[in-house]
């Protein structure tokens, strides 16, 4: 990783620390979603524990899309992106840095809370570790795909719904394999491997597409 990327990530984390806790939005949404879905599903333990992996994955994939509308928009508006570009730095590196910092700031708390959320929904203790591992492997797919879409809409105000409309179809594949991986209850399942492949593919493609979009906004 170049020093530019690490510098950017450091700046993003400092900014998140000073933002008055808005970084925790995703984690709060994640926990609220699981609590409310427990109410919606009713008191029957077995029914809930069967649905726990699906609900945790659903909550995590939606929560990871929160606050994506600001990922590039602020840097585009206040000129940070332009400075970076005029400075001759690579926009691919900029997008990678932004995605990694979104992953660290927004997704890591969700990841840490995920075994707790699964437990609250009544999932058996044996699959808690697998829930965590599958989200750790699938997380980059969720963050990079959503981040790529947020680069497309960077020059729009109030683009939250538009981001979800476009990134929604993209999230289908990680969701299918993520939930499938937990349900197999097997650490070496092929679902988990395919989930890893989707994440790796997203990590390669998303920064390139985000760069194309950012160049359009800078034109």
């Amino acid at each position: 990783m170049t020093s530019a990327i690490t510098g950017l990530i450091g700046r993003e984390i400092r900014k998140a620390g000073r933002s008055g806790g808005s970084w925790a939005q995703g984690a709060v949404f994640f926990i609220l979603f699981t609590v409310l879905s427990a109410f919606a599903l009713g008191p029957e333990q077995e029914f809930r524990s069967n649905l726990a992996p699906a609900l945790v994955w659903l909550a995590a994939s939606l929560a990871s899309q929160l606050s994506l509308d600001r990922l590039f928009a602020e840097d585009l508006r206040d000129g940070t992106l332009e400075c970076w570009f005029v400075d001759g730095q690579s926009l691919v590196e900029f997008s990678i840095g932004k995605f990694i910092s979104h992953w660290l700031v927004v997704f890591t708390p969700i990841l840490i809370l995920s075994p707790l959320a699964a437990l609250m929904l009544g999932a058996p203790v044996s699959i808690l570790a697998l829930t965590f591992i599958s989200l750790a492997i699938g997380g980059p797919a969720l963050v990079f795909m959503g981040g790529m879409v947020s680069a497309l809409t960077a020059n729009l105000r109030g683009s939250g719904l538009l981001i979800v409309l476009i990134s929604g179809p993209l999230l289908a594949a990680p969701l299918i394999f993520g939930v499938g991986a937990v349900q197999t209850a097997d650490i070496a399942s092929s679902e988990l491997k395919i989930l890893g492949a989707i994440s790796l593919g997203a990590m390669v493609i998303a920064p390139v597409i985000a760069t194309l979009a950012l160049k359009v906004h800078l034109e």
Binding site: L152, T153, N155, L156, S159, L162, L165, I166, P169
Partner: peptide, 9 residues
């Protein structure tokens, strides 16, 4: 999504 993003920008 295509129609929406097209009309939004």
């Amino acid at each position: 999504g295509y129609i929406a993003i097209r009309s939004a920008i």
